[in-house]
Design a protein around this nucleic acid. Structure first.
Lengths: 155, 155
DNA sequence: ACCATAGAGGACTAAAATGGTACCCAATTC
DNA sequence: GAATTGGGTACCATTTTAGTCCTCTATGGT
């Protein structure tokens, strides 16, 4: 279903929560409470986000988590990648090599392009966007026509 | 990783294979051979594609599978949906109801829009595109600016 | 009519990813 | 130095995914 994992979902929610008050540090417990999720799970998520460099942490009393960068410099793809690893629709769209069906497949290259388009899209959505409580506007149709998926035989 | 499941991958490859010779029926065994995948697995995939209405099947001798519609009328999303069910990035982006965190979440609506954008993108890629052995061209950047994800809040 | 071919449908199993929890250690602050 | 708060790891339960197999039904050829 192409879904994000639940943890990624949590991550987004938690990040948004932090983004709404970027000045003060947020303790894991506080966030868990705010978001109504089990503390250990939130904690785990936060750690992953720190590892990915999206959050900074401060230990000790009065410690907590803060955004490592302004919300508008953190993108959806950053968050997804932090939790799930590289975004790629197929095995072969992330790196080369692994797929031994490349010959018979005949589709790999095109999937990679689609993958890229998805990544680009995801990269254009920032945490600042996501954190807006008021729904963002997103006109239903992308001007996809501009994607030259058209039958261009040659290069 | 937002990956497609392996079966979906197979489905795409097999569909492409059929699309390249749309006139004749293709037996599961033949396709499995062509694509170098185990017969039962390919068979299973094909059945799913038939159920989804993307392929038509003919039983008996000289039978096999054929596209139910011209390749350019079958989209990536059709194939993905056939195997994995509805494409949605989060639980709540597919239907309403299931998520009991909607209040605290504050991100749901925005994810849904992103989801929609991804779906639209995927909908613009047809089987005809995928089936081209020559790689399709896809200029790296989508004109994402036109997506009014623009900030309504601060900044 | 009968047989060979080819798909339909479903059940079942094995394996892997995911989600969740617990435990103990390290750093800060008061 | 005690309380607070994050860091790291290891572990377990559950769910998903993938793959296989078996039997039934439809079609075409002889």
């Amino acid at each position: 279903m192409m879904k994000l994992s639940r943890l990624t979902d949590y991550a987004a929610v938690v990040m948004a929560q932090i983004a709404r008050q970027p000045q003060q540090p947020h303790a894991a417990a506080e966030l868990a409470e705010a978001v109504k999720l089990p503390h250990p799970t939130v904690s785990k998520t936060l750690k992953m986000l720190v590892k990915a460099g999206l959050l900074e942490s401060q230990r000790g009393a009065q410690g907590g988590y803060r955004l490592a960068r302004p919300a508008h410099e953190i993108t959806a793809i950053d968050i997804i990648t932090a939790i799930e690893g590289p975004v790629a629709m197929t095995e072969c769209s992330q790196s080369d090599g692994d797929c031994d069906l490349l010959d018979t497949c005949g589709v790999a290259d095109n999937w990679q392009r689609v993958s890229l388009a998805v990544r680009t899209l995801l990269d254009s959505v920032t945490l600042a966007h996501l954190a807006q409580t008021a729904p963002i506007k997103l006109p239903v149709r992308l001007p996809i026509q501009s994607i030259d998926l058209g039958a261009t035989a040659d290069t």
